[in-house]
Amino acid sequence: MKPAPFEYHAPTTIADAAGLLADLGDGAKVLAGGQSLIPMLALRLAVFDHLVDVGRIAELHGIERRGDALWVGAGTTEAAVGASVEVASSVPLLAKATPFVGHFQIRNRGTLGGSIAHADPAAEYPAVALALDASMDVVSSRGSRTIAARDFFDGLWSTSMETDELLAGVSFPIWGGRCGFAVEEFARRYGDFALAGVAVAIELDGDDRVRRSALGLIGMGSTPERAVTTEAQLAGQPVTEVDAEEVGRSAVAGLEAVPSDLHGSADYRRQLGAAMVARAWRTASAEARHG
């Protein structure tokens, strides 16, 4: 139950961190809040020769408006995201997801970037990032690039970042107009990873028709999933004529890798997922209609 020995590095700039990751190669791993990595090290599910602690890099912290998106530095703690007035007003879906992320003691250390880089399919932030078409700013000593959320989560606990790359920040598009947002999930105990859940965003036009919607499914596959077929079917429909239960059934219909374990079979999770989608759809559409 004790991590294996490692060499500790605490760079104070992104450039230094990127340099270390380039020099140290595969034996190095980024350490952020440690709320996912340290349990894995303690259980010896993972062993690294070098940990590069990005917790002292000031450039990785912050929440700021950049054009029509809200940029959140990767090192911003989940607690800071939850407490931010800017997040609550510009990206309500992110604010609504935050209380579901672990417990307050976890959120005091855990970071937004750590959660997204860890890419747990049952985590809330990856599903929100996918639903809102967020983009990830990634930096290495070779340069920087932006990865769209749909190209970022490429497998169980896996992303399209290379091992020498650092996630610097995430930009969440700001939805304006008549919008509604909701996150619903079912967990065995408050704060546990969800058995099934969803993050829903809806925008209506002036005639109460669905202009666009986004459904990010939590815990329903080996990556966060997006119910794109359902979203396409909903576009243009009068929201008062949409049956929330049908949205739920449709959203889970095409899923191919619903997990199954001692906490619940794939069938059970599918039903649960459909129920969560229906519930979130009702809340989000009511918010979009009535503000």
């Binding site: 500790y8 605490a10 440690g34 709320q35 340290i38 349990p39 303690a42 602690d53 307050f104 003691q105 976890i106 005091n108 250390r109």
Partner: peptide, 10 residues
């Protein structure tokens, strides 16, 4: 409040 088992002394 944080979990002291999920933080290194350093």
């Amino acid at each position: 409040a944080v979990r002291s088992c999920l933080m290194f002394a350093v």
